[in-house]
């Protein structure tokens, strides 16, 4: 049984060593923009390539996330509590707005 315990300890140590790395990966994979009071928060978000940005609508009114130039960014209507994710693979600056309240604007900077 001793070798089993050693293996478990080894795995635990390995896990502890990997933990910071995993956390970094988790952060890079998921950046959140909330929608409150007809505003994207934060209005500008900077992420690394490969990041999935998730928009969460916390208003009682639906919103639609639409890329200004990149038309592949387009959410379905987001009702209260709904979210939409888009993975930004390449570096660049991506302006977007709400397709039904176009004064709502935001930017994703990927670098």
């Amino acid at each position: 049984m001793a070798h089993v315990r050693r293996a478990a300890i080894r795995a635990g140590v390995l896990g502890l060593l990997l933990l910071p790395l995993l956390r970094v990966v988790a952060l890079a994979a998921d950046a959140t923009v909330t929608i409150d009071n007809f505003t994207f928060n934060p209005a500008t978000i900077t992420v690394s390539p490969g990041t999935r940005v998730v928009w969460v609508n916390r208003d009682d009114i639906p919103h639609i996330v639409v890329g200004r130039d990149d038309k592949s960014i387009k959410s379905p209507p987001l009702d209260t509590g709904d979210s939409y994710g888009f993975t930004f693979s390449h570096a660049g600056t991506f302006a977007y707005f709400c397709g039904i309240h176009p004064m709502m604007q935001g930017t994703v900077v990927v670098r």
């Binding site: 639409v66 302006a95 977007y96 707005f97 397709g99 176009p102 004064m103 604007q105």
Partner: peptide
């Protein structure tokens, strides 16, 4: 007047 809305517009 509710379709093809432009970013930043009305």
């Amino acid at each position: 007047n509710v379709q093809n809305l432009k970013a930043g517009g009305l």
